[in-house]
Design a protein around this nucleic acid. Sequence first.
DNA 1: GACGGACCTAATAC
DNA 2: AGTATTAGGTCCG
Length: 400
Amino acid sequence: MASKALTEWRKLPVTLAELCIDTTLRCGQSFRWRKIKDEWICALHGRILALKQDPKYVHYKITWPDAMPGVAKSSIKRNGDALDDSEELLRRYFALNVNLTALYEQWSAADANFRQKAPKFTGVRMLSQDAWEALICFICSSNNNIARISQMVHKLCQHYGPLIGYVDGEPIHDFPTPEALCASDVESRLRELGFGYRARYIAETARVIANDKPVGWLEGLRNPGYDIKVENGDGESTRSTYKAAHEELLTLSGVGPKVADCVCLMGLGWAESVPVDTHVWQIAQRDYKMGKAKTKTFNKVMYDAVGDLFRNIWGNYAGWAHSVLFTADLRAFSDKGFKQEPIEEDEIMKNERSPVKKRTTANSNRNNSDVAPVKKEEEAEDVKVSSLPSPGPAKRRRIK
DNA sequence: GACGGACCTAATAC
DNA sequence: AGTATTAGGTCCG
């Protein structure tokens, strides 16, 4: 029997500058959190986690399955409350060992655009999600929107994931295992559930992970130093291994460069990984003058160039910084945000003339010789974003 | 090896 | 009310 202690609220001291769960849990990196009666709810590692936040604390409550009537007992072993690992789980999931305030200062010092946008989007952290879950969720994300991705992931859990318990009468399921998605009818079933062409990707990838790859293959792609040393990884080896992980992921069905980077960044601890999607490409063009007239097509070379540009500006945690600007660019946050207008030219110039001193960022000792398609300063006609008086994001041109 | 289309769907925009 | 467009891309020819 679960003791009462486990179902009571506990608190973790965290400032809103270090973590804003309201933003972080809605900005398109995780798709399973749901807000139910003013609490953020998600099943993680076989238990239900409930979160609330005030300016000084994150309050959390854990509910184990065997405390729920009619729910199968947890398969996870626990040796009593004393050894409950929920706080550690929380610290790891939110990567609280990383000093976000210091990183914002660093990014702001190096980048005028970040300095302008970030103040309205503080406390946006990169979550350390399960790599398998990130893999499947971001396969779902292709050519899709956050609302539908969340809906699809929810269905995936409902139909294939273990029931962990109920919150406010709603069943809460954990994420399904690869094995659970290996049945022969999974693809057709997922199509019926509205997954579209991603159904085949998911079924194939699940089968490859469960049957073809060696046990632990995906976890083996993890950044080994990420949870251990917080700052200053070895830039050289880190980069090559990140590249290797990225390349390995590309062999999976439904996984292209962007999805592979999402898995690297959000599931495998490669903080320098920068997933370049339509938003990031827009940002690179609009705010960093990437992709001049000739090269406005978006190809693999350009993909790598955008990532390298941001790694050069932001350093080893470029993926974290990217998430802040990505969030600022999301329509869901447009009420909070700026009008999507280019920043002042002189700000950009200032920015370009002092590209991150490598020593101040204490890392990024990679060669930045390959920043290729940067810009000249004229040709603003393409960059122009209509500044309509009405609210809502400016109309964007299609890049596909 | 680069490039253009097709690909599922549901919500929103005209 | 019906149709076109869009949304965190990937695969294929």
